[in-house]
Write a protein that binds this DNA or RNA. Structure first.
Lengths: 219, 219
DNA sequence: GCCGCCATGTTAGCGCTCCTTACATGAGCT
DNA sequence: AGCTCATGTAAGGAGCGCTAACATGGCGGC
């Protein structure tokens, strides 16, 4: 067959060229197309052009591949969040809303990653890397929460961890319930990004973080 | 065999006694144990004591059974929410927090229903009953939002639909991320119910609904 | 009260997937 | 050059979704 040789641009390949990477990419494509359940080990092998048994040289079983995809997803997710947060520039509130949009954009533009991370039923204990990358992604949210809290007087500061959990929960809730492009779910009067931005504005207002700290504009 | 006859209390049974109900119950048990993916048509048939082909007399395919489970789940969900809301008695805020606890309790105590409803990838278009029961459940949330809004001056009222979506998103986010009993996910410094209650208090505070309209709950 | 119909169940089987075991091959080290 | 081991293939068992053809028995029509 010729497909063994038509990847000469990968110098480190043994037989196939790095099959592991290609399997991950195939898995991403399949999950994105047909959901995390429609993803099939055999079909990923087929897409990579190898026999159905070949993937087992790189992943113990199907779940391990999914866990690997999820871990890579959390890494890309963290990078996206960190880039959007940009150390809170120019000011924490602007950066925070940018962070929210980036969250939803990731869920929307990388449905395969997001599915593997949150909807495929992969336990975070599946691998240490998975747990670590998920923790790093959450730490990004927590940093943003801390920066926002810093503007409050000390006796009014909520716990940063709790605030990060609230942010994550509302973001994930909106992404999971309304963030998908396909028409399977409920039509909205506004975009998911607008919905999240409005929700976060109200939430921050409740904490005393906002355009008018304690007196909403009466007129 | 005796299992054909040991359901004499069901007068309408043909051969088995109402197999359809038993299949739904078996599916609920399996989904609760092994997640929506671990659920198997053949195993549900085995639990009901019939051959693997028998379920196809009652459900076109596996997805239709899942959609049926989801629809029943939404019905039970709506009943739970309506009971918890109790027409906003004794006052809307008390009833609202009771509603939030009921939401999480449902997700926690009926993981099979909740999985089928939100995590199994069942499209709401799978059946008209599913869409209708999901709409009725959401209407319950929306009613609560409207009752809470009613206490605000007219020029400060947010759209009730948006508010209901926020409530749903945060509730679902907390349930999906932190509401499960099994140890696969992240340990929390507080219970999911407390987390949701705190988040909703802050959110309502941001809308101007709360014990003291302009001072956050510092105590 | 008997009979035929049709809903409900059965067995048999196809094609697929997950995963294992045994075998083949070729890259890189010595 | 030759050895070795990682990386691939081939073959097969068990299980599942689903279909087709066949069996059974409850119910309505006569």
């Amino acid at each position: 067959m010729s497909w063994k040789r038509d990847r000469p641009e990968h110098p480190r390949g043994y037989h196939h060229g790095n099959l592991k990477e290609e399997l991950v990419r195939a898995a991403l494509g399949l999950i994105g197309e047909k959901g995390p359940n429609g993803f099939t080990f055999a079909e990923a092998a087929r897409l990579a052009g190898v026999s159905p048994a070949a993937p087992y040289r790189h992943f113990r079983d199907r779940d391990e591949l999914l866990a690997d995809v999820a871990a890579r997803g959390f890494q890309a997710f963290e990078a996206t969040l960190v880039r959007a947060w940009d150390q809170g520039r120019p000011d924490p509130e602007t950066a925070f809303h940018r962070l929210g949009r980036a969250y939803l954009a990731f869920a929307h533009d990388e449905p395969a990653y997001y599915s593997a991370m949150f909807e495929a039923g992969v336990s975070l204990d599946a691998s240490p890397e998975l747990r670590a990358s998920a923790d790093r992604a959450f730490a990004g949210l927590r940093q943003a929460a801390e920066a926002l809290i810093a503007g409050l007087p000390q006796n009014k500061r909520p716990p940063a961890l709790m605030m990060a959990l609230h942010i994550w929960a509302m973001s994930h809730g909106i992404a999971a319930l309304f963030g998908r492009a396909d028409g399977g779910r409920r039509p909205l009067p506004m975009s998911a990004a607008e919905l999240l931005e409005a929700g976060m504005l109200i939430y921050l207002q409740g904490l005393g973080i906002g355009p008018e700290t304690a007196s909403p504009p009466a007129g």
